[in-house]
Design a protein around this nucleic acid. Structure first.
Lengths: 115, 115
DNA sequence: CCAATATATTGACATATGTCGATGTCTATG
DNA sequence: CATAGACATCGACATATGTCAATATATTGG
């Protein structure tokens, strides 16, 4: 399984450096969606926690306590990250495992490239 | 003059790649502030428009029409970008000239580095 | 000093967002 | 099938945000 997020992961708007040429409205919208997912401390810490796992993946159940937020709040933020294409998820039995989608992170990084 | 933004430009939280190690609460807060400034299409287009100027700088008066928003709205977004340390400004007579702060953009870019 | 222009600020409004408790849904296991 | 556990969703709430019209604050020219 482990399907990538269908929402925004596809329309990557990769390789559109902000500083190179004026953004189109569509590119600006899509990029803003990506950065919006990164614009919250809880989500940044989640992303960081997921990436910190030696296996590269982590059970959602192991994210609630380190984040220090309620389970519904963690679930909400994970959903935002997923819909932004920044993380992928896979259900195994009762648990859901999350991993970072490095390509998506890199795409946003590219948008901030020198020019 | 052309002083850099006093707000966030200093506490750069540069060189703190998200994916390398779990973020501290403070780093997450500061990073989120930076990405928040990028999390709006109008601000991304502004940043892009400013960067697109051959001289590297542009009068605020020349940003209203291309952005297609009201003057107060443009002024508001420029303030957000300024307070995030992403642009610098200099008043010359009646006009205010804006330019991108590439170091700040690069700092946010570094936060998204591979690991 | 007055009029004109550029920019910032204020006030108002609708909408979006982060958060939590309560509840629903699914899955494994007696 | 009943129970327990993991996760998602719902409802509610306070707060934040994008937007504009109106107004205030410079600054330049006459």
């Amino acid at each position: 399984m482990a399907k990538a997020a269908t929402t925004a992961a596809d329309e990557q708007v990769c390789c559109t450096p902000l500083l190179a040429a004026p953004l189109s409205d569509d590119d600006a919208d899509e990029l803003a969606r990506g950065f919006h997912a990164l614009a919250d401390p809880a989500r940044l810490r989640l992303l960081s926690l997921i990436a910190a796992q030696p296996e590269g993946e982590v059970c959602a159940c192991d994210l609630v306590e380190p984040l220090g937020k309620s389970q519904p709040t963690v679930s909400h933020h994970l959903k935002v990250l997923y819909e932004a294409g920044l993380v992928d998820r896979e259900k195994r039995g009762t648990w859901v495992w999350y991993r970072v989608v490095p390509e998506r992170v890199a795409a946003l990084r590219t948008a901030l490239a020198e020019q």
